[in-house]
Design a protein around this nucleic acid. Structure first.
Lengths: 230, 230
DNA sequence: GCATCGCCTATTGTTGACAATCTACAGTTA
DNA sequence: TAACTGTAGATTGTCAACAATAGGCGATGC
């Protein structure tokens, strides 16, 4: 037996966390419309559990900002405004800038490892652009940035960023905007990767700032939403 | 009746959040020793509630990193290592640097307002230094930084920082280090305030980085812990 | 004397039922 | 007709009992 303590630990993580993960995925995929109330009993039976564990999971998601809880009213799917977007992207920028600094300070090995991962993601991105699979692109976009931050190894930074990633996906849902700038998407990420690989501190910072700024502009301009019913 | 909807809303916030706040305060004040298991039944009756709401609150604190949950074992007070300190302070630096940038970009009014608050806190700090009240100093220290970040008005940044503040206090508990550098404490905060007031972007950034670096050094040096059994 | 096996207790995980609260709708009155 | 009030329904908040799991401890066999 190679690793006795890691075989068949059948869900070693706490139940509430498992439920929270399932529910978060459901929400960011748009299974609930923004502002909609979450019925505890219904959800509990839907997820094959009871109200107790479910409520514990809901608390987690409330703290993440994906849900909002009103006393004696229940929990509701968060409705994110354009102000929320600006907030989220400001924090994302802060986290990524810190990640960039940390990465560049932590040796060539970590940088190379991270670059390798990022390259793979960009490669997949190009494929999905060709296939016009927006859903996959949105996922890869988040994967890229999450991988970038994960490169630091700072568990707290990573956890924060995962929450921000979920909120970002909520934004796109709430505002019902199409995934923007498909063409520039690969380019911008490639630029970030290039600067990281070249260990160009200033260039990397600028690329990140520019990327965030553009994203906010795209998401907040809302130029006549033409209701592209999927 | 001036404001009907705001009179006697007797705890408008959800119960789990209230319990979580109480419990967090207990923990960061050292009511539990690091690594200690948290008995649900005992705590529930101690806080005059039931296990249900308490468990919901525990989930929140687990996500904050103040507690750690092990399946079928229970929740334990987090034990923070020196690596954790480095992580926490790296994130704190990132958040404060972002707050600095945001503040300096958001007009003189916000800067002035924030400076006014910070000045008051520093004034109190000086008093507590004279009174040698370390507990109050630790609280004011956190208050200063929280106020600094609050100046941005970015609710997500603020929430993240509050969690980091709690974890920082946990660090001091876990490592059983005395509150360091009493004399330099007021000076360093004053320096940050001065740079903010002068809108000196680079100086402010440097002061923040320096402050964080020194704090980590103080907390991680651990020069022969002489086992001061309380 | 030491290791192993099995029980036992304490604690967590889960569930269902009960109480409290809010929203919505219908009935009533000016 | 409009506004107000009372009731009904549904949903959340809370609680106590039940089930399941893990760790400790003693007995037993080698």
């Amino acid at each position: 037996m190679a690793a006795p303590e890691t075989m068949f630990v059948l869900e070693g993580r706490p139940t509430a966390q498992l439920i929270a993960d399932q529910l978060r995925e459901l929400i960011v995929q748009g299974a609930f419309s923004p502002g909609q109330q979450v019925n505890e009993s219904a959800l509990a039976s839907q997820l094959s559990t009871s109200r107790g564990p479910l409520r514990e999971a809901l608390q987690r998601l409330c703290q993440e900002g994906i849900l909002v809880s009103k006393r004696n009213r229940g929990v509701f799917v968060a409705e994110l405004s354009e102000d929320d977007i600006r907030e989220i992207y400001a924090v994302r920028e802060a986290v990524e800038l810190a990640a960039a600094t940390t990465l560049l300070d932590s040796g060539q090995d970590k940088i190379s490892d991270t670059c390798r991962v990022l390259k793979g993601i960009i490669k997949n991105m190009a494929k999905q652009v060709a296939a016009s699979d927006w859903q996959a692109l949105a996922r890869l976009d988040m994967e890229f940035h999450t991988a970038f931050v994960s490169g630091t190894g700072n568990t707290r930074l990573i956890r924060i960023y995962q929450t921000l990633a979920a909120e970002t996906r909520m934004c796109i849902l709430s505002l019902e905007v199409a995934y923007p700038r498909i063409d520039a998407l690969v380019q911008e990420h490639q630029l970030i990767l290039d600067h990281l690989e070249a260990a160009d501190r200033q260039g990397l910072q600028k690329a990140i700032k520019r990327h965030m700024k553009k994203a906010v502009e795209d998401l907040t301009s809302t130029p006549e939403v033409t209701e592209i019913t999927a």
